[in-house]
Design a protein around this nucleic acid. Sequence first.
DNA 1: AATTGCGCTGTAAACGATTACATTGAACGC
DNA 2: GCGTTCAATGTAATCGTTTACAGCGCAATT
Lengths: 364, 364
Amino acid sequence: MSKVARSRAKNRSVTIRDVARRAGVSTATVSRALADPERVAEATRAAVVAAIAEVGFTPNASARSLRARSTKMALALINGIGDSFYTAILNAIESTLFEAGYGLVMGDTRGTPGREKHYDQLVRSGQVDGVLLFSGRLPQEGFDDLSRSIPILLVCNDIPELEDLPVIEVANRDAAFEMVQYLVSLGHRSIGYIMGPAANVEAQERLRGVREAAAACGLAPDDLTIWEGSFSFEAGTAAARRFIAMPCRPTAVFCASDQVAIGFIKAIRDAGLSVPDDVSVAGFDDIEYANLFSPALTTMRQPRAELGRRAAQHLVSGMSGDRKETPQRTRLPCTLVIRDSVRPYRAAATRDRAPELKATRAGV
Amino acid sequence: MSKVARSRAKNRSVTIRDVARRAGVSTATVSRALADPERVAEATRAAVVAAIAEVGFTPNASARSLRARSTKMALALINGIGDSFYTAILNAIESTLFEAGYGLVMGDTRGTPGREKHYDQLVRSGQVDGVLLFSGRLPQEGFDDLSRSIPILLVCNDIPELEDLPVIEVANRDAAFEMVQYLVSLGHRSIGYIMGPAANVEAQERLRGVREAAAACGLAPDDLTIWEGSFSFEAGTAAARRFIAMPCRPTAVFCASDQVAIGFIKAIRDAGLSVPDDVSVAGFDDIEYANLFSPALTTMRQPRAELGRRAAQHLVSGMSGDRKETPQRTRLPCTLVIRDSVRPYRAAATRDRAPELKATRAGV
DNA sequence: AATTGCGCTGTAAACGATTACATTGAACGC
DNA sequence: GCGTTCAATGTAATCGTTTACAGCGCAATT
């Protein structure tokens, strides 16, 4: 206890100067012994490492950053950290950044200008070497200058105003196209689509995919029912209410996210309908629980780990000075994951006579 | 384009000196005008802010940190960022830290010594002002000195070797006690418990609660079946296999986490049994999907947002120099969330003929 | 009129590392 | 024996801020 108090009083940290004194060399030599050991005699190098161990020295990061003009940190800016969709991406990002010697700072704008301004200052103050913009944004003002002085990358976050920024995302149009194609291939010809927020570019791209697939498969415009919403559970329940009220309901509903799909299915079920017996439901994302849900969700898997890995790699190459303009836009393909929430249209028709019919698909 | 190239070449940043020159004052005055405007004449203050706006100045964080010996950053160290259990906690932490003017650095040890060492260096280098140790650990060596020089807080992570560190966690014993008491109150007298990793102190505490509740409710030691495992989905499926093989099965199973419960239920169901008809299952945590799962999970809710908020508050008060020793151990209460996966024993008894089997068991 | 006090500001020394430049001494070639 | 070279090291400037200390007017006090 007295030991604690004593240590607390002494606040001076052990610096490179202490090491130098201890090893009987100059600070420059100590620094060199650490930075590139080749440039220093073996004997002195040994003396330096011994001295470091003896005095317990760790180079001060602020001093180093100040001199080197680099903090070896990257910022991931999100609007809503709480959304577990991002965890797998962030996981891969941390991993890749770590490998490259970078740390990860997390920020959440929560869509408020105050917070956006704050994080803007954070990066302008040089506290990070690069930025990954997820759903988070930065203030418009002076953004161009900022993005010229530090690498900024959009991840799953296609902001139209920021045309000239590199983007890493998923092939949204193609993914939606494929899903609709799949549904049609199972015999569904009346399809509902719960799109995300209308303002969201990714949602727009998916909608485009849905429309193009419908056209390509020979569906009439009336065969497609579009509900606007968001990516949330509630958007699913809201759409379900409208779905139930329809006189002629679609036989399959494609949702903009797994959350939406789960909300939709829950509400459908509460109304006494069954999935997939009465209606097939497909999701998007393949979140952690898509497979655990009942019925296990048929969905479009976003390669989240790969997304994170690629984003981090791209950012790292930017931060380490590789200013060669790598491809401005990377679109990773999604993969269709077939589980139990979607069923061929004909099977649905025979539902009443075959109650014991069990899904032939098993989850993982 | 040429503009881009030009900007890139010019690397010198705008400093406080530029502002000083522009405003016709000294750097000290500029600094004061920002730090506490009271100490500077109104006219000069105005001139300074004007100059700042004109030259576009943001104070350099590294220089400031170097001088102030504080980075205004905190590290959250986790073993497995990918686990979505933490997202709600981290969400609250980011929020609280932000309010107090601190940023959040995320680290993942992944249980490897190399990474632990790395993050140890990170905090020793002064890159952060405080540390929240979740499941992540730091190397034993020199830890005492470290924890004396910088606030470190354990969150939901009771490490026995680190007795004198402040801890914020959940009242694990009480929560487990309450759950078992609840199950018994519904008539269950043969209860299974899938505990977490045996080495985990939190799991041990919960086990203690289970045992004490069983004793308090007058259950015999044989009425309790304990399976060791982890907090994962797989631990649930593994336990389910053993459960199914039992001649006289418990009528209720309490799981160390919702993940475990979901795994258990899935496996139980695949074997043709039903929850809660054949067996009641309770979880722990109340993760995001506990309510979406079918059947909706009866579980013990960990107050994750509150946990994060309190942890961050405690850490902030430590980082801002409040060295008054606040309570070393904070235990927040959990709340029982009753949903559909647990059912009274008697209700199960009316189901069909199977209960007779259990009735004899209960008669023991 | 001299002294004191005070509000405002400038000068310069930190903070702790990196690194350009200078210096030393030994080896080597002639 | 003397310049040349080169490896190894030291000296000191630098990164951009904060802040202790000091100075300078000007008003108020004696």
